[in-house]
């Protein structure tokens, strides 16, 4: 039996606001999938059906969109999804060492979830933080930059206590020398 998913009144209001940004309804698919994922933690097929029914679109279309984009979770993942960047700048600055460390620490491989459902690890493509390599992103949200194994260890401890990292502002070096 799959779970029942519904949007509440506030969600529906937000969806109407989203629809008003575009000349037709189809473009609302991506923002509404995001809204659904933020609410339910994933967009497995039953959630895709909810999105399709709410927008009056074929479920096949919504599934087609959801499956094209990697950030939509088509099945449930851990509470915290650790996306370790291994693209070239991170690769040469130790991204794979960070990934190895995480795999050993959590006892799972990239693409897997810990048994208690707390953590998933993924090796991902460039996240646009190349100068701050190696780095990872926590559940499509905060970036943790300039990683060391110690930094990873304290991140895991914090996350276990439900403490998300904060946004880190990284100024341009020219600005630092002038101010």
């Amino acid at each position: 039996m799959s779970k029942e998913y519904t949007f509440d009144k506030d969600d529906l209001k937000k969806i109407e606001e989203i629809k008003s940004r575009y000349p037709e309804v189809t473009p609302a698919v991506m923002p509404v999938l995001w809204l659904a994922q933020d609410k339910f933690g994933h967009v497995e097929p039953a959630v895709q059906k909810l999105v399709a029914d709410t927008l009056g679109l074929p479920q096949a279309h919504v599934q087609g969109v959801a499956s094209f984009y990697t950030q939509y979770y088509k099945k449930e993942k851990g509470k915290f999804v650790l996306d370790v960047c291994t693209s070239f700048s991170c690769q040469i600055c130790g991204g794979y060492e960070i990934l190895d460390h995480l795999e050993n620490k959590l006892g799972i491989k990239a693409g897997e979830t810990t048994e208690d459902g707390m953590f998933s690890i993924q090796s991902v493509e460039c996240l646009g933080a190349c100068g701050y390599a190696p780095m990872l992103q926590v559940t499509n949200d905060k970036y943790v930059n300039n990683l060391t194994t110690e930094k990873v260890d304290s991140l895991i401890e914090n996350l276990k206590q439900g403490k998300m990292p904060e946004f880190e502002s990284i100024p341009m070096p020219q600005h630092e020398t002038e101010s």
Binding site: T26, M30, L33
Partner: peptide
């Protein structure tokens, strides 16, 4: 408009399809 993880959407015609709510 928020993307969802696809490098190809930086290609201009792909970006338009993505904005239109398509693959």
């Amino acid at each position: 408009h928020m993307g969802a993880g696809a490098y190809i959407c930086g290609e201009e015609s792909s970006l338009m399809n993505s904005l239109e709510g398509k693959r």
